[in-house]
Nucleic acid binder design. Structure first.
Lengths: 139, 139
DNA sequence: AGGGCTATGTATAATGA
DNA sequence: TTCATTATACATAGCCC
């Protein structure tokens, strides 16, 4: 490449190696940005040289999430997985609470059986009784 | 590049975009491998296209550890923190839904003001009306 | 180190099968 | 579609600051 062809093996001369590292790193990052724009893709490049220099990354976390989801590879350790499970659990709990709430408000009733309707009716009557008693107290 | 110059913006034609994605992805991965060998560096490229295709990575975790150590950026901790924040957010949401639900059931009313009681009373009456209408349909 | 400069090797856009 | 092919644009090795 350039003024002379090189073969792909470790560049022994330290300063040449560092110069090449720097140039090629920029090249790769540029290409990554390009494919991101051109192809509507996510691209993350993480390069760390022996010099300790390394490329920054903006949205790496999101990218890695996507990567995991698509590839099925697990990058995070058990702790993260537990947190994720906890999130899923709470979300589910939240959903069912929301549904119950909507039913009590008289929404989305078509999926309910007659017995369930009776249950909600009783709950509502109880609630109404309690609320009215409380109103009297405050009045 | 190639037969004609292109400007770096989203390729609208889908098949062209996919072809370009595939070619450039390979190009980037090749470059990454080269810099690894030439410069004694670690390089990891994670690319995911809208097609759901994504580049495999062998030692990504090790790489990311190195990256974190060298850059001082905390990927794992940041991820951890994000998940924890998400959990807190959902928990809070869940709590308020639960409280509303208890109020509708006529529980924990002592903290409510008169106006709030009126609001719940109306909601309950509406709910009851809807439930009873629905019961008639199913009967 | 880091930036500019070519000559040259590569990557790749367009094309065709 | 996914492959070859090929002309062209781009990246970069070796220099010089």
């Amino acid at each position: 490449m350039g003024r002379g062809k090189i073969e792909i093996k470790r560049i022994e001369n330290t300063s040449n190696r560092q110069v090449t590292y720097s140039k090629r790193k920029n090249g790769i990052i540029k290409k990554a940005k390009e494919i991101t724009v051109l192809c509507d893709a996510n691209a993350s490049v993480v390069i760390s040289g022996s010099s300790g220099n390394c490329s920054p990354k903006t949205n790496l976390i999101d990218m890695l999430d996507t990567y995991q989801r698509l590839s099925g590879n697990k990058l995070w350790d058990a702790k993260h997985e537990n947190l994720q499970n906890e999130i899923d659990r709470i979300r589910k709990e939240n959903d069912s609470t929301q549904i119950e709430l909507r039913h009590l408000k008289g929404e989305d009733l078509t999926s309910l059986k007659y017995e369930e309707l009776i249950g909600y009716e009783e709950a509502l009557e109880n609630g109404l009784t309690n609320i009215r008693e409380r109103k009297v107290c405050l009045f």
